[in-house]
Design a protein around this nucleic acid. Structure first.
Length: 374
DNA sequence: AAACCGTCCAACCGCACAATG
DNA sequence: TCATTGTGCGGTTGGACGGTT
């Protein structure tokens, strides 16, 4: 079904004339596209049944809606998925599971159908290959997330999360269980996690406000959806942020064998549902600009852009970049204003409990970011 | 060149949910 | 309440396409 058949009448397919309601099915002809497009441009979106009728289309409203959303909509982004989009899809899927519409809502110009197809064809296959090449153990949870009841995404090898380590470089952040130590560790109750998550608090980078790196080491995917999996998430007084960075061998976003190689231009925050845009060039050092128009709902992603510099060296040594938010190697997100203000506004942010399920159950409340890859 | 086969993706289907009468 | 209608979502299908034999 790649191309619509331009021959009038020929593309009426299969059951087109079998049923007596005269509703066409199957591929859309260019004439039908024109009718729908013209109608939508002139009248805007309304009741789809009316659209179908008033546009002179022998299609059900549902079909018209689908055609418009998936193909005719002017703001659709054509072409292959960029590496950034791919990474974002992978991560969003790890958080959201097969909620394609929610994933699509965070990928401007992309449709849920498109993402779903992309996932089912490209990414799933790649994960499958990767999984088979990096481990000899198998798990029912490994790759075929679409068939899983709990929408499990990409959990670690063997269906378990391998030891993970998080570097959380957050000045003035104290963790209630170990506020004085430079290295804190705590366990998260991830159902598939085999080892406690260790969180290292770096108190030595006070001029890098708001930086949080979360990365995984060893084999395993630092991702997951559903209650049994985890991503990293911080809940700061209602403003949640998440971030992850894979550096381990075979990690989901890892440096060796991980999807995307090094996940170097990584934005792990779930972007906003509102006003997302993503533009890109194809250069190896794409910048990522994050902005938001949420009117101070999330002060660290305010209307000022957060600009990430794709610099491999601003990852873990933060001597030159302020406010590197969620940046993996090269994927840092800088915000010299709002993020800093956010962090500076709270002298002692406290993270009382790290309840994975609580964090994951409300993915939609994560800070909304606006992605642009320059 | 023809047959075969795997992949891709547009479109359909069934279901759930909300709104309305 | 209950039925109807409209909408949206996720899963699935089936045919075009391209590569391989």
């Amino acid at each position: 079904m790649r191309k619509p058949d331009a021959t009038p009448g020929k593309n009426t397919n299969t059951s087109n004339n079998n049923n007596n309601n005269k509703m066409r099915k199957g591929l859309w002809s260019p004439e039908e596209d024109d009718k729908l497009m013209n109608y939508m441009m002139n009248n805007g979106q309304g009741c789809w049944s009316d659209v179908a009728r008033n546009a002179g289309l022998q299609r059900c409203g549902k079909s018209c809606r689908l055609r418009w959303i998936n193909y005719l909509r002017p703001d659709l982004k054509r072409g292959a998925f960029s590496p950034q989009e791919e990474e974002l899809i992978i991560h969003l899927h790890s958080l959201l599971g097969n909620r394609w519409s929610q994933i699509a809502a965070r990928l401007p110009g992309r449709t849920d159908n498109e993402i779903k197809n992309f996932w089912n064809s490209t990414i799933k296959k790649r994960i499958k290959n990767m999984s088979s090449s990096t481990t000899t153990t198998t798990s029912p949870n490994t790759s075929d997330s679409s068939s899983e009841k709990d929408n499990c995404g990409l959990v670690g090898v063997g269906g378990f999360m391998s030891p993970m380590f998080m570097d959380v470089v957050v000045p003035s952040l104290t963790l209630t269980n170990s506020s004085t130590s430079s290295t804190s560790s705590m366990a998260l109750n991830g159902g598939h996690m085999t080892d406690p998550l260790q969180i290292h608090i770096d108190h030595h980078h006070h001029h890098h406000q708001g930086l949080m790196n979360v990365y995984g080491s060893a084999n395993g995917y630092f991702s997951g959806a559903g209650q049994n999996e985890m991503s990293a998430a911080l809940d700061f007084g209602g403003n949640r942020m998440i971030g992850s960075y894979g550096s381990g061998q075979g990690g989901m976003f890892g440096g060796g064998g991980g999807i995307g190689g090094g996940m170097e231009k990584e934005i792990q925050q779930v972007p906003p549902l509102e006003s997302i845009s993503m533009e890109e060039n194809n250069g190896p050092n794409n910048n990522i600009v994050i902005s938001s128009n949420l009117n101070n709902k999330y002060p660290f992603v305010n209307s000022k852009n957060i600009k990430g510099e794709s610099n491999h060296h601003n990852n873990n040594n933060h001597h030159h970049h302020n406010n590197n938010l969620g940046g993996g190697g090269g994927g840092g997100v800088n915000n010299t204003n709002n993020l800093a203000n956010f962090w500076q506004g709270e002298d002692q942010l406290k993270v009382g409990e790290w309840d994975l399920e609580e964090l994951m159950k409300d993915v939609s409340s994560f800070p909304f970011l606006d992605f642009q890859v320059e």
